[in-house]
Each structure stands twice: as structure tokens, then as C-alpha cells.
Amino acid sequence: MTTELKRILLVEDNQKDIDLALAALAENELANEVVVVRDGEQALDYLCQRGNFRLRARGNPAVVLLDLKLPKLNGLEVLRQIKADPQLKMIPVVMLTSSREEADVATSYECGVNAYVVKPVTFSRFVEALRELGVFWAEINEPPPGSIGRRANRRA
């Protein structure tokens, strides 16, 4: 398990989606900025630096890309726990999901999600979406204090 802290935490269980996301991030030269975890529990372990991620470097990622459908804890539950934790609640969380369901969108925003992105069907649009997400949250946006941002990364 990784002990690194990177700017993007991708929470995704489907290997094909991970491959596509990594390929898209690679197209945008963001592949080295991402840590991938496979379920909700791991996501929280990573963020809270416990379990397998006990030894990871301190600090928060600049953004969490969260799938809705996840094993163990689903995306909404992870989101709720992040937003309920005083240490984590400032981390920007972006839902990256296949679901266009109104209920999912509404509940995510009620739980304090920072953005909601439906995965486009075609790869070129997906690349575009991930580039804009990566650029915005990891580059343009000023992350909350304690996060690994553009400048912190540069320093490291």
C-alpha cells in the first residue's frame, strides 16, 4: 500500500474505469498526481491515516474523486463521513459517477459534495472532463490549509 500523499485521491472499484481514468489523467499529464483506492473503507482509511495507510505522509489530497457505487461503504456514506469529520470536511469532494439519477445528485449536494460529474460515454469527452477536473481542483483551485496543493507539491 502506498504511503505517499498525492493531490488526487481516486476512489473507484472497477478496474476498467480505473484504467480509463488513469489513461485520461495520463493524457493530461496528471497520472503521477493520483492515488487509487478500491472501496469506501480504504478511502476513509487513507484519509484518516489508519489501517494500511497508517504510515502515509501527513496532509490531505487537494481533491477526492469519488464513485457512488463502491463495495463496503458506498460513495454517499464516504462523503457523509468526510463531511462529518472536522479534520476532513474541508477536502473538496467530487462525485464521478455513471448515475444521472436526480435523487443521487440531490443527496450528494445535501451531503455537501463540492461537484457532481457524470462520466461521459466517449473517451475523448472523459479525457476532457478529467482534464478540466484535474486542472481546476489540483491547479486552479486554492485548496484548504493542510492539503497538498500546487505550491506544496512544488516545494516537495
Binding site: K16, S98, S99, R100, V121, T122, F123, F126
Partner: peptide, 22 residues
Amino acid sequence: FSYSVSHDLRAPIRHIAGFAEL
């Protein structure tokens, strides 16, 4: 049903399109 269509059916279609493009 419409929920699983939106979630479970879109994923494989996205994978086909995505990997074909790759």
C-alpha cells in the same frame, strides 16, 4: 430498474467506447 440501467448499463457501454478509442 431505471436506476440500474443508468448505473450498470452505462458503465460497460462507456468501457466499450473508451477502450475502443484508446
